[in-house]
Design a binder for these strands. Structure first.
Length: 536
RNA sequence: GCCGCCUUAGCUCAGUUGGUUAGAGCGCUAGAUUGUGGAUCUAGAGGUCCUCGGUUCGAUCCCGAGAGGUGGUACCA
């Protein structure tokens, strides 16, 4: 005991966080609100484990037998690689495929939990964080995608963020069509193009333009190699971000196949004299008409037409139909808007992609503006279940980054992270009377009131009251020998006392005043506490 | 991964031009007060000065390497 043993420094690996009662309560409230929206849309919960076989998650490095370094992995007894899940989508695909025979199809499910990524953490980025997902598996139409977007918007409303977010929607098929039109055949080159576009909110138009061409030298002096596009190609892609100015309006022209309208840009004069079968897009999808027209214009600027290649056509048509659905359901462009610059991750999305963006400024503790990125997103992933089953299974879904959203709300003071009320504390005035104090606690607990007897060092009475204060306790119960003889108790209202004492500066006066304290009969304990709690 | 900055008490930081017992504020513990929260006063605990190596009579300080933290950037399913 005399020799000093080497102590272990209590420390947390970076990217991980402890959560206090206030934070747990605040996130719990968020979860309840999100859950309520999902359930209202007809989704059912399911829970899957934190660990999966690495091959289930699909994260083996190419050409090696080791998992991707970005996932936490370990080998089981039989040397099979297992990994902590890094999202909730791959485990859902596994669950659906494994229970294919019994699940209803389409299958609507939601689930919430921690996911893990072994990457360098940053502001608002963690190595363990919570996601809350909803997915519809087995429904291939844009109605399912549109429903996802509307549900995301409803969730944000339910969290009290009306008017402070926008759900941005794009379609990967449109981007693929652009690629074809521009004649980019190299997959790697296209990958760099997509990454560059995805960085728009971080590095701006100039930065993206540099990345699309030769490359960009950032502030730290690091050079990022560009995609090697020509100036003409780069400028055309940059139109995706340009402010929308339209001389012409998009129209849908009926064709022999009623499911395949043609999309063109017409001048207003031409539209006004339009023959039957030509519909202005803004009459059916007002919310996003300008953007739809704009996408058509981007195609024209590179010498193509939006419906001249299959991929772009279907992407465009899906966006058009989703726009109609948003319009019909009353979701305007200030809540959900079509935005051709949305890219989202790169791996498995096959059609519509969407992202929630906060439209208010977020500042960190030091008062600096923080680029927060999206707080949620998703899209259609028709290929994911096919890894487990031979038949094609379409699926769409999205994910809310609960941790990141909570962090944003915390920084803006919109998260109610106040410490929850503590228990009623019964003070120990006389160690011989423990049984009596414990009986009081039991009475209170039986009445459903949080209560505890002070268990620490009872020698100094002031410390007991200080303990109750630190516990955020609303009330303390005092029974000394004087009270016991008279069959009474002292009830001390700590909340009222705190207010009443604010004006007192002298310690002697402070003690004499005993603010917020009054007497009751012993047998009135439960009733008096209940009454006081309801008044506080 | 790459680039910059940082590392002294639980926290925020001072300091030593290289010299013997390394400081402050806040916090913590105890006492003033075995019948009252805040404030006040008193006392106390708490330090491998990030680690290792080098230079030096002597290193917390100078030099080198490493670790950790932080910011940017890359990757991000």
């Amino acid at each position: 005991m005399t020799e000093k043993t080497k102590l272990i420094a209590p420390r947390l690996p970076r990217g991980f966080e402890d959560r206090t009662p206030g934070e747990i309560a605040a996130v719990g409230q968020m979860i309840d609100k999100i859950k309520a929206v999902y359930e209202r849309y007809g989704f059912d919960p399911v829970e899957t484990p934190l660990f999966e076989f690495t091959e289930t998650l699909g994260k083996f490095l190419p050409d090696t037998d080791r998992p991707n370094a970005g996932v936490f992995s370990l080998q089981d007894d039989d040397e099979q690689w297992m990994s902590l899940r890094y999202d909730l989508t791959a485990p859902l695909a596994r669950y659906f495929a494994e229970n294919f025979e019994t699940l209803p199809k389409p299958y609507r499910s939601y689930r919430q939990g921690y996911v893990f990524r072994n990457e360098k953490p940053g502001p608002g980025r963690f190595r363990q964080f919570m996601q809350f997902d909803a997915d519809t598996v087995g429904a291939g139409g844009p109605e399912a995608d549109a429903e996802m977007c509307m549900m995301m918007a409803d969730v944000m409303d339910a969290l009290g963020l009306q008017g402070q977010y926008v759900v941005r929607v794009n379609n990967r098929k449109v981007l693929d069509g652009l690629r074809q039109a521009m004649g980019i055949s190299d997959d790697d080159q296209w990958l760099v193009v997509m990454r560059s576009i995805d960085k728009f909110d971080k590095i701006g138009a100039t930065g993206v333009e540099q990345l699309l061409q030769k490359g960009r030298l950032d502030e730290s002096g690091d050079f990022t190699k560009g995609a090697g596009l020509s100036e003409v190609q780069a400028k055309a892609l940059l139109l995706l971000f340009a402010p929308i100015t339209m001389q012409e309006v998009p129209v849908a022209i009926a064709t022999e196949d009623t499911n395949k309208p043609r999309f063109e840009l017409w001048s207003l004069d031409k539209v006004n004299a339009a023959p039957a079968g030509v519909t202005r897009v803004d009459e059916v999808a007002q919310a996003s008409a300008a953007t739809l027209g704009y996408i058509a214009m981007v195609f024209r600027s590179i010498g193509s037409q939006v419906d001249s290649n299959t991929s772009a056509y279907y992407g465009y048509k899906e966006l058009y139909e989703m726009g109609r659905l948003f319009q019909a359901a009353g979701y305007n462009a200030d809540r959900i808007k079509i935005d051709p610059s949305v890219v989202r991750g790169l791996e498995y999305y096959t059609g519509p992609v969407f992202e929630i963006e906060l439209t208010f400024k977020v500042q960190n503790e030091k008062g600096q503006d923080v680029v927060f990125g999206s707080v949620g997103g998703g899209g259609r992933y028709d290929g994911l279940v096919s890894r487990f089953r031979r038949e094609p299974v379409p699926a769409t879904g999205f994910s809310i980054g609960v941790s990141r959203l909570a962090n944003a709300l915390k920084l803006t003071g919109k998260l109610n992270a106040s410490e929850p009320a503590g228990p009623v504390v019964v003070l120990v005035m006389d160690k011989e009377q423990m049984a009596g104090y414990q009986a009081m606690v039991a009475e209170l607990r039986q009445a459903g009131i949080r209560a505890e007897m002070f268990l620490g060092n009872t020698k100094n009475f002031g410390k007991q009251v200080a303990y109750a204060d630190k516990r955020n306790s609303p009330i303390v119960i005092i029974e000394g020998s004087q009270e016991r003889e008279q069959g009474i108790l002292q009830i001390k209202d700590l909340i009222a006392g705190k207010q009443a004492a604010a004006a007192i500066t002298d310690n002697a006066e402070w003690k004499a005043a005993r603010p917020g304290q009054f007497e009751i009969k012993r047998d009135e304990l439960v009733a008096a506490v209940q009454k006081l709690l309801s008044e506080q």
